[in-house]
Design a protein around this nucleic acid. Structure first.
Lengths: 241, 241
DNA sequence: CGACTTTTTGACCTAATTCAACTAATGTGG
DNA sequence: CCACATTAGTTGAATTAGGTCAAAAAGTCG
């Protein structure tokens, strides 16, 4: 279960047995957080670093006008707040969508990494650079792609990330967002998300049913979405598609 | 001139005299790059880290369909490619807009920082976290704000950043982007940028003329744009507005 | 079962794009 | 320095993509 993080990190560089063991031990204690709960809130300053072990969460911000923008999806193996050591306060919130199991690394674990485990530190740095690349691609998506293509692109990305942590090997995975939440992610109205999904479904690109995404032909979807996974910076090409 | 970087870093934490001197010496040699040149290209893997000393550049990506999305503005004191040490290849390009003076840090300088200058390393980490926050806010901007507000928000942000590096103290600064380039930044057509700018100008919020932005009343603009600079994580509040 | 949320659909409307023309600026070579 | 070429900004009109509103259908959960 909690080896998602390890699987992910090893897409960058193999870990030593010792680092692997240490990570397992330090992420062993998890708590369960129900759906639609905040893991961290904007303005707060958590002292611990949280890692999603299982479930689905999102990074989001609420504007003064009360509109919500979601700008990242967090799945097993993803860090919530690596920034903690440097920044004084969160500039956005993180909320669960589905029930999550969350591990908590105390500040000592973080300093253990930075001081004594340089290989791990490099891997975490890689994570945060990939997150940054993912944000950039998100912007490209919102700015330059038509709605259906936009959703398709997001699905292609998630499919790759799910494969990395072994949550799919057949282009089918759990996706608990509502259409309203997809809309808040992509800057679209709920109604238009619904119509775009219908378009995708009717064209045979994807279907979302019972909180599950099914991609009948991933190559066709990649083509349609103009998806190029370079920004995920995976070493292992086999994972991509 | 080249103290822009120092000014910026000191928004996070004061530097030691030694670090300050070292930074000055290492960013002393600059080259001049004309307008509309790439400083780094997608897919390439530069070995040096570049810092903008003067001028204006953008991070961008071209989609398969040939559409350009700009997702970051680089001004004096900004790093081009801190990722170099970790990632094998750039997932986007950086191009000048106006003529730039660019300093180049060789790989040795980077390892000097990570190995012997932990305070500097922390400051650079802070830079990269702020960049990340800026990307998130960019997404909020594109997804949730109306065009005129979106442009206004971008201007508020730039105004703060310009003040940090001493490129304005009177809410007036050089802004060399064309309306087409603003459009590519914000996901808007050129025509609509033009109309939104007209709206902003007529309402007395901002005017862009001769490559210069003038903000008559920054508080009014901040209010209109719903701008909250928390995501820039500046220690010195006086800088904000 | 009944309350509630989510999905789906239709009708209407507005915001934003596209197309096209024109003006204003900027730059270039003779 | 001027004539010409090129790029950038401005405006109007037509079109369309996407949003809003409203209501029904389907699914979820106590």
């Amino acid at each position: 279960m909690s080896d998602a993080l390890i699987r992910k990190l090893e897409c960058y560089e193999p870990l030593s047995d010792d680092d692997r063991r240490w990570l397992l031990s330090v992420t062993k204690r998890v708590r369960v957080v129900g759906p639609h709960q905040d893991l961290v809130q904007e303005g707060h300053n958590p002292s611990d670093v949280q890692v999603i072990v299982e479930g689905f969460a999102v990074r989001y911000k609420i504007t003064r006008e009360g509109r919500r923008q979601i700008f990242a999806y967090l799945i097993a193996g993803d860090f919530c707040d690596l920034h903690v050591a440097i920044l004084k306060s969160m500039d956005h919130s993180i909320g669960t969508v589905a029930t999550c199991r969350v591990a908590t690394l105390p500040p000592e674990a973080v300093s253990e990494i930075t001081v004594n485990r340089p290989a791990l530190a490099r891997s975490l740095w890689w994570c945060s650079l990939v997150d940054e690349g993912t944000l950039r691609e998100w912007i490209v998506n919102m700015g330059q792609r038509r709605p259906a293509q936009r959703i398709a692109h997001m699905i292609c990305e998630l499919n790759v990330r799910m494969r990395v942590v072994n949550l799919t090997n057949s282009d089918t995975f759990i996706f608990p967002l509502t259409q309203a939440e997809i809309g808040d992610s992509m800057g679209l109205s709920t109604v238009h998300v619904n119509r775009s999904l219908k378009e995708l479904r009717q064209a045979g690109y994807v279907s979302i049913r019972d909180q599950k995404i099914v991609i009948p032909d991933i190559q066709r979807l990649i083509e349609f979405a103009a998806f190029d996974p370079a920004y995920l910076h995976l070493k292992a090409q086999r994972i991509v598609a």
